[in-house]
């Protein structure tokens, strides 16, 4: 059976989706990146390969996420795209009528405005991570609550407290202060959800045409507390797609399919899971730019280099042993 693979390697999670020729999702997995993208991708490939290696033949691979360039080299990708396009592609297939996409991931939050399936406007947080998944994760850890139960707890609140949401660090001190005053855990968590939503709408969503149907996706969409806070603030119901947490990877399946319409795939095969990938880096002293150059070795063969501005290193024949 022909199939397509999409990989999204983000700051917090690494997602893989396998889609068949009829554009049905066969399987999806969500693994924590834990700061080791290479390991996470290989683990994902291993799991998927064991399940689907014999039954499917991968005809196209798309990658996205902040580690997309690295991943593209590891697995041999046909399409390398930014997250915004990948997410928009997935939504235009899954919820064709969507006009606004709210996506909150590990370290970025974005809003994508679509009209007739085409992105007409978007925004992404630039210099601040307040109100992203990582922050929620950290706070859940601090309060010793499993992140999965975080949202449920927020729903039990009676009087959500007001928390400064502009800066993650000050939000944390605000939370600690409220907690020391004796507010209940539920109220604090609900307050945090509201602060996060407020920050998102005032920061990323500022000046954007937020029109229904609204789609909410990304890892944070699993958090019912945030969803409720959004609905309260916007006055519209949010649609959470079935594969909300792997939409980037799903979009990559479509992109991979499109990219291989007239060519064969560059996919290295599931066995890439067992290759020994070794990234190293050095600082080029050739000029005052002091570029940090990354080298990727596959089984002790140098397969790629990047990070230099001038092209001195990345242009070098990558076949040198």
């Amino acid at each position: 059976m022909k199939a397509y693979l999409g990989i999204d390697v983000g700051s917090v999670s690494t997602n893989l989706v396998v889609m068949d020729e009829e554009e049905q999702v066969l399987d999806s997995i969500y693994i924590r990146t834990l700061g080791q993208p290479v390991k996470a991708v290989q683990e994902g490939l291993k799991i998927m390969g064991q399940k689907w290696g014999d039954k499917t033949a991968i005809n196209g691979v798309g990658v996205t996420g902040s580690a997309r360039n690295l991943t593209a080299v590891l697995v041999g990708a046909d399409a390398v795209k930014n997250e915004i396009t990948a997410h928009a592609v997935a939504v235009s297939q899954v919820v064709p009528s969507a006009q606004t996409i709210i996506e909150i991931g590990g370290q970025d939050s974005k809003i994508i405005v679509m009209r007739d399936g085409i992105v007409t406007d978007f925004a992404m947080n630039t210099v601040c991570a307040a109100g992203t998944g990582s922050f929620l994760d950290q706070q859940a850890m601090r309060l010793n609550i499993p992140i999965e139960e975080f949202g449920e707890l927020a729903l039990k609140a009676h009087n959500p407290v007001r928390i400064a949401g502009r800066c993650a660090v000050f939000a944390e001190s605000d939370m600690i202060h409220k907690q020391q005053l004796g507010h209940s855990l539920e109220d604090i968590i609900a307050g945090l959800c509201e602060a996060l939503v407020r920050n998102y709408l005032n920061n990323v969503g500022k000046g954007k045409d937020i029109m229904p149907p609204l789609v909410f996706q990304g890892g944070v969409a699993a958090n019912i507390g945030i969803k409720t806070a959004f609905e309260k603030a916007l006055g519209h119901e949010l649609i959470i797609p079935k594969y909300y947490d792997v939409m980037g990877a799903l979009g990559c399946c479509y992109l991979g399919k499109k990219a291989t319409a007239h060519s064969t795939t560059k996919f290295k095969g599931w066995q890439a899971a067992n290759f020994n990938f070794r990234p190293t880096s050095f600082e080029c002293k050739g000029c005052p730019n002091l570029c940090e150059v990354i080298e990727i070795y596959e089984n002790d063969v140098l397969i790629a280099r990047w990070g230099d501005r001038c092209g001195k290193w990345s242009n070098k024949s990558i076949k040198v042993g």
Partner: peptide, 22 residues
């Protein structure tokens, strides 16, 4: 991060140019 935003913006502009009515 910078390239992600640029790329996405260029995709947007390109699409808009191809389908101005949208």
């Amino acid at each position: 991060g910078f390239q992600t935003r640029l790329e996405a913006f260029l995709d947007l502009v390109q699409n808009k140019k191809e389908a101005p009515s949208a």
